[in-house]
């Protein structure tokens, strides 16, 4: 069950863990400590880039900017995206 973000009414961004497989969006921020944040960014997962959630699970599969990434669920929980449907 997706957890309810208390600020969701004033913030359109969603954690990757609250996004359904197949949904697409734009990365808004990575709410992680410097090292882990840097590791993700170096793989191309940076704010402003489009990302597609391929698969959920204990390891999340993402597609972004020509790359396919596998990241731990615990990291995915701190990646915030703005869903394409919310932009529209």
């Amino acid at each position: 069950m997706p957890s309810v973000d208390p600020l969701s009414h004033c913030n359109r961004s969603a954690r990757l863990t609250d996004v359904q497989a197949g949904e697409e969006g734009v990365v808004e921020r990575l709410d992680l400590e410097a090292d882990e944040r840097f590791r993700l960014m170096r793989l191309g997962l940076v704010p402003g880039r489009r990302v597609n959630l391929v698969k959920r699970g204990s390891r999340f599969l993402l597609a972004t900017a020509g790359a396919r990434l596998a990241i731990d669920r615990a990291l995915a929980a701190h990646v915030y995206i703005i869903r394409s449907q919310d932009i529209a």
Binding site: E36, R39, L40, L43, R59, L61, A67, R68, L69, A70, I71, D72, A74, L75
Partner: peptide, 8 residues
């Protein structure tokens, strides 16, 4: 460290 890798 938590997994974060590229799948070529």
């Amino acid at each position: 460290s938590r997994l974060a890798i590229e799948l070529p």
